[in-house]
Computed example of a mutant assay.
Amino acid sequence: MSASETAVADCETLSVGQIAGLRRKVSSMHRVFVFVFVFVGLAAVVSCSAHADVLIGVSAAMTGRLAWIGEQGQRGAEMAVADLNATGGVLGQQVRLITVDDFCDPEQAVVAAEKLVADGAVFVVGHYCSGASIPASKVYEAAGVLQISPGSTNPLLTEQGRDNVFRVIGRDDAQGVVAGSYLADHWGNKKIAILHDGTTYGRGLADETRKQLNKRGVTEAIYQSYTPAKNDYSAEITALKAANVAVAYVGGYHAEVALMVRGARDRGNPIQFISGDALATEEFALIAGPAAEGTLFTFSADPRRNPTAAPVVERFRADNFEPAGYTLLSYGAVQAWAQAVKQAGSQDLRDVIRSLRSHQFDTVLGRIDFDEKGDLTVQSWVWYVWKDGEYVPLK
């Protein structure tokens, strides 16, 4: 039994007991009065059940090499729920958050999704990894649970035709166009390498970037995969140097890119590294050290710079947490859900879906709305550069 069901069951037990007492007190009264008392007791049950907490979930990699990003998602959702409850919750009910660890793994993501469904979550902020979001989305669809991802960028997530799936970040077919064009514009006459980690996210982004690069009339010198989660990428760095590669675009996660950058600099290789949104975490600079300087990547327009997000950003910083990366994207996902429920006047999934598709929502991400697939109608991929231990917009 889920926590919400337990709360309701406790409430129902008390009310049924009260009903029994009422019936004993009126045993000598006319049958119609018994009915009146029973009706009043049942109304108490309904009223009490209606005030049980609304459960929502957040699912991301909370352990392992992507735990830093998982914490961003969790902290963003936690702050959003706290702020929501401080203003009355959703339709008069308080909201409670459940966190599960999907390890950024397809099979574990399904287990995590099933756990959230069993616990009674009506909405999930997640998953972060595309390779986790896509298989989990099937579980949520079957259970009638809304899913809004703050970080999954692979196009397939919203191309499956699942009405319950949305995201508050752009797609890699758009991100790849930006990256491929930038490579063609700045290194079209140099040797370019495109690497990927074989994951749904990494390979998908690399392929979209390659597609746009080739469309611009430039063919990469190297296209190959690498094994994620290794401690050393000296072999890959040596191969890039031997091929006289000037720039390497890496479709993958921040930890591996950081090790590549550091390895290249340690060997005196000035190769330029470029990657995607997964580099939007402070851990990249912690792993890469001074070698992080100058690394380029694409990410959403930084919501920390939105005036409407300032109060939220200040509260995070007052708690000694920098809301970088996907923190505010998770916060914004909760805001969109809560506003959609309010607009619909209902928590029914079909009503909320219709609301999400027919309204605009004022969030820490700015004003957003969704198309029929569940994607943002406006996508903005921005270039960033790592400088002095933080990422800033590229000028």
Rank of each mutant, 00 (worst) to 15 (best):
P307S: 01
R315D: 08
A278I: 03
R23G: 15
L365N: 00
T13A: 13
W381R: 00
G374S: 01
L328A: 06
A184P: 10
K191M: 07
E314F: 09
S49Q: 14
Y384N: 01
E114L: 10
I169V: 12
Y226V: 12
L195W: 12
V392N: 05
Q212K: 13
Q175L: 11
E114G: 04
A336M: 04
V34G: 15
V40M: 12
D197K: 08
W381K: 02
L328G: 03
K190G: 03
R171L: 00
Y182N: 07
Y140G: 06
I134N: 00
V364G: 01
E390D: 12
A318H: 09
L259H: 04
E282L: 15
E141F: 10
G204Q: 00
T377L: 14
G161D: 02
E141Q: 14
Q212P: 09
P323G: 04
V46R: 05
G120T: 02
G294H: 04
R354G: 11
G263A: 07
A179C: 02
N214A: 12
Q379P: 12
Q339R: 01
A174W: 11
Y391V: 08
D10H: 13
K138Y: 06
T238Q: 12
A301W: 03
V81L: 02
I192P: 05
A324V: 14
V378I: 15
G176C: 03
N85R: 08
P270Y: 02
V245N: 06
G131R: 01
W187D: 09
R203D: 13
L183N: 06
G76P: 09
S49W: 08
G374L: 01
S149I: 03
T227E: 12
H196P: 14
E114A: 12
V58C: 15
P393T: 04
A248V: 13
I368E: 02
A61D: 01
P323L: 01
T308Q: 15
L279D: 09
K115A: 10
I237T: 06
K395A: 14
L55S: 10
A60Q: 03
V16C: 06
Y140Q: 03
H186T: 10
S130G: 05
V352C: 05
V382A: 04
E283D: 15
D101G: 06
F361Q: 02
T209E: 05
V341R: 04
G389M: 08
G57P: 04
L84P: 08
I271S: 09
A288L: 03
D362Q: 11
K215P: 07
V218I: 06
P228I: 00
K342G: 11
H30C: 09
H196M: 10
D362C: 11
V32S: 14
V36I: 12
M1K: 05
L213A: 08
A20Q: 05
V81H: 04
R31I: 13
G366H: 00
R265S: 07
I353G: 07
D302N: 11
R167H: 00
V125Q: 05
G294F: 07
V245L: 03
V385Q: 08
P155I: 09
G57V: 03
F123M: 11
K373C: 02
P393A: 05
S225R: 09
T13H: 11
K241E: 13
E12Q: 11
L394D: 10
T281G: 11
E78N: 09
